[in-house]
Measured scan of single mutants.
Amino acid sequence: PREAYIVTIEKGKPGQTVTWYQLRADHPKPDSLISEHPTAQEAMDAKKRYED
Rank of each mutant, 00 (worst) to 15 (best):
P1D: 11
P1Q: 15
P1H: 14
P1K: 15
E3K: 15
E3A: 15
E3S: 15
E3H: 15
E3F: 15
E3N: 14
A4Y: 13
A4G: 10
A4R: 02
Y5F: 10
Y5S: 04
Y5Q: 04
Y5G: 01
Y5V: 06
I6T: 02
I6G: 00
I6D: 00
V7F: 05
V7R: 09
V7K: 08
V7I: 12
T8A: 12
T8E: 13
T8C: 08
I9A: 05
I9P: 01
I9Y: 08
E10A: 08
E10H: 12
K11Q: 06
K11C: 05
K11F: 07
G12R: 05
G12H: 06
G12A: 05
G12K: 06
G12F: 04
G12D: 04
K13N: 14
K13S: 15
K13I: 14
K13F: 12
P14S: 07
P14Q: 10
P14M: 08
P14N: 10
G15N: 08
G15R: 03
G15T: 06
Q16G: 10
Q16K: 10
T17Q: 12
T17H: 09
T17L: 14
T17A: 10
T17K: 12
V18A: 08
V18S: 11
V18D: 09
V18E: 14
V18C: 04
T19H: 05
W20F: 08
W20D: 01
Y21P: 01
Y21D: 01
Y21K: 00
Y21A: 00
Y21S: 01
Q22P: 01
Q22N: 01
Q22R: 00
L23V: 14
L23T: 02
L23W: 00
R24I: 10
R24D: 01
R24Y: 15
R24F: 12
R24K: 15
A25P: 00
A25N: 06
D26Q: 08
D26I: 08
D26V: 09
D26H: 13
D26G: 12
H27F: 15
H27K: 10
P28Q: 09
P28A: 07
P28H: 10
P28Y: 08
K29R: 12
K29A: 11
P30A: 11
P30N: 09
D31W: 13
D31A: 12
D31T: 05
S32A: 08
S32Q: 09
S32N: 08
L33V: 13
L33D: 01
L33M: 07
L33N: 02
L33P: 03
L33G: 01
I34D: 00
I34Y: 02
I34S: 00
I34N: 01
S35P: 00
S35V: 01
S35Y: 01
S35Q: 01
E36Q: 05
E36C: 05
E36P: 00
H37A: 01
H37R: 00
H37I: 00
H37P: 00
H37E: 01
H37T: 01
P38D: 05
P38M: 13
P38Y: 08
P38T: 12
P38I: 11
P38H: 09
T39I: 03
T39L: 04
T39N: 11
T39S: 11
T39P: 00
T39K: 03
A40Q: 15
A40W: 15
A40Y: 15
A40S: 08
A40D: 06
A40I: 15
Q41V: 10
Q41S: 11
Q41A: 15
Q41K: 13
Q41C: 07
Q41M: 11
E42H: 06
E42F: 03
E42P: 01
E42A: 09
E42N: 05
E42Q: 10
E42W: 02
A43L: 01
A43Q: 00
A43E: 00
A43K: 00
M44Q: 12
M44S: 08
M44E: 14
M44R: 09
M44D: 09
D45E: 15
D45L: 14
D45P: 00
D45I: 14
D45M: 12
A46G: 03
A46E: 05
A46M: 04
K47V: 03
K47C: 03
K47T: 01
K48P: 01
K48T: 10
K48E: 10
K48Y: 09
R49P: 02
R49V: 12
Y50I: 04
Y50V: 04
Y50T: 03
E51Q: 10
E51V: 08
E51L: 08
E51N: 12
E51I: 09
E51M: 13
D52T: 15
